[in-house]
Simulated scan of single mutants.
Amino acid sequence: MALLRVVLLFAVTAIAEIVGCYLPWLVIKQGKPLWLLLPAAASLAAFAWLLTLHPTAAGRTYAAYGGAYISVAIGWLWVVEGIRPGFWDIIGSLLALAGMAIIMLAPRS
């Protein structure tokens, strides 16, 4: 159960970061309304707070989070942007998740 909690926490953390970065991208690249910067800022604040909820040292959390972020970003590409990930996107995501698992699940003394 603890592992599932950590995996879900990584996913929610990644979504908060992606939303916080995607909304300004929409404003700058697609001319969307400036008010979108307010939920973007709130989302990035939530992202920073969510990182503090992870159960391991900050550096290890940040390192492992990178793998989760890559996979969630590829999912975002498909679900939100409507672009189906390619073979190499999937392979890269799986490799990143393998790295995350090694960092988070390695036995420690």
Rank of each mutant, 00 (worst) to 15 (best):
L3M: 12
R5G: 12
V7C: 09
L8S: 10
L8I: 15
F10K: 06
V12H: 02
T13F: 06
T13M: 08
A14V: 11
E17L: 05
V19Q: 00
G20I: 05
L23S: 00
P24W: 01
W25P: 07
V27E: 05
Q30K: 15
W35C: 06
W35F: 14
L36C: 06
L37C: 06
L38T: 08
S43R: 04
A45G: 07
A46L: 15
A46R: 10
F47C: 10
W49E: 10
L50W: 04
L50A: 06
L51N: 11
T52N: 07
P55W: 10
P55K: 02
A57G: 12
A57H: 12
A58N: 13
R60I: 00
Y62W: 10
A63L: 04
A64N: 04
A64H: 01
Y65D: 03
Y69Q: 10
I70W: 06
V72D: 01
V72S: 01
I74R: 00
G75N: 04
W78C: 07
E81H: 02
I83S: 11
I83D: 13
P85L: 05
P85A: 08
F87I: 15
I90T: 08
I91S: 06
I91F: 10
S93E: 06
L94E: 03
L94A: 12
L95N: 11
L97A: 03
A98Q: 08
M100I: 12
A101Y: 10
I102L: 15
I103A: 03
L105F: 09
L105I: 03
A106P: 08
S109Q: 15
S109D: 13
S109N: 13
